[in-house]
Amino acid sequence: MLNELGKIFIASALINNFVFTRYLGLCIFFGVSKRMETAVGMSMTFTSVMVISAALSWLVYNLVMLPLGLGFLKIVIFIGIVAAFVQAADTILRKISPGLYYKLGIYLVLITTNCIILAVPVINADEKYNFMQALTMGLGSGAGFSLALIIMASIREKLELADVPKVFQGLPIAFVLTGLIALAFLGFSGLIRL
């Protein structure tokens, strides 16, 4: 039915959704899901950074680090790669497309050392994915994170109008919501048969 890449995409976006199943990237998830506009901006930036950093780190890991026998250094190196790439993207965007820079610039800085961004190359390395699989993994994770952000933002915008008991106002009710959505996401686990 689904080919290998499709399975990886579905798995990373829904079944192993970074926010709801792996519980990664929660700081950003709660931070920017207050408004739909910021949530969408963050999703776009996040997905593109994730795909590109997955590609870059795959290249460095498989072409340089593995032949040298330096696999154990992957976390340090991946952080460096992502940070350098984000910084470069920040500089280049500012010159080439100021409009895009003002839309996404603030998010770029936030995600430099984000755990999801780091998790994607690490998982790619552990699973020994090939290049296309690594890219798909990045794209799927981005799509999953975007989905999580947009679901949460739309609920929280409604939540502004709801009569929440005082003790639950703000973050507590957001955590409760996240738990409920995570439960719902468990339902995706039967989606693919290996």
Binding site: M65, L68, L70, G80, I81, A88, T91, R94, K95, I96
Partner: peptide, 27 residues
């Protein structure tokens, strides 16, 4: 030695790359 050299080299590459980017795309 290999890992130190590798980290050193990759650090230099990133540093140079960022420096060039900063100079070339300076706003």
């Amino acid at each position: 030695t290999v890992s130190l050299a590798f980290i050193g080299i990759i650090g230099v590459i990133f540093g140079l790359g960022l420096a060039i980017a900063a100079a070339k795309f300076a706003v």
